[in-house]
Design a protein around this nucleic acid. Sequence first.
DNA 1: TTCGTAATTCGAAAATAATCGAACAACATT
DNA 2: AATGTTGTTCGATTATTTTCGAATTACGAA
Lengths: 105, 105
Amino acid sequence: MAKNMEIQQPLRDEISLPKVLHALSDPVRMEIVLKIARAGQVACGAFDIPMPKSTLSHHFKVLRESGVVASRREGNVVINSVRFDDLEARFPGVIGAIIAAARWN
Amino acid sequence: MAKNMEIQQPLRDEISLPKVLHALSDPVRMEIVLKIARAGQVACGAFDIPMPKSTLSHHFKVLRESGVVASRREGNVVINSVRFDDLEARFPGVIGAIIAAARWN
DNA sequence: TTCGTAATTCGAAAATAATCGAACAACATT
DNA sequence: AATGTTGTTCGATTATTTTCGAATTACGAA
């Protein structure tokens, strides 16, 4: 298999609102997003969520495929960030309001 | 069984963000919400969505139980409205941004 | 090349959600 | 009371998601 493959994620214009909302409707994934949003850049390994890593990896996959999170490999860790610019361009106000609301509740 | 029962829906403070996002993550339900939002008040029967009424009723139930939609019986129709005030109070900006985004996409 | 660490993929099982016809309930009208 | 209309509930089926251990990939370092 080819090495150094780009991690698959949708282009800005391909991001779909139902998929974004579904991705964020899971409390574990929301917690992940909050932590990434707070820190800016977080490696997958930095989450001490009590859960097998295959399950956690699944949640990252959902977040990535929905366009909420961007992941890139750096050495042998995967760094995640929230795609604020793309989300804001496509769905103005949505991601900010959701994250702000989730911080309080 | 008792007659004239109130239709069950969560109090403002019981509305949960994950449930709201899940409710809105379905395209059929989003379409329902858009139509209600546009018109203010819409009876269940006013939707010409090609789908059995039991399925449609299920979607209304999800919207109601998540706190997105309020339903009240008036004569023999059920009138639906979006709970803007409650949603705005609990999750400022969320419902407005999502509906605005959904209108375009 | 071998080893260790980080993370994804696979495959199967369990849990949730969506779908839909048939039966039922609430209400207005006759 | 009988009938028609609107919408919900029930129960069964199918579809989608979530979960998790085992195997695998990607990469850096020894």
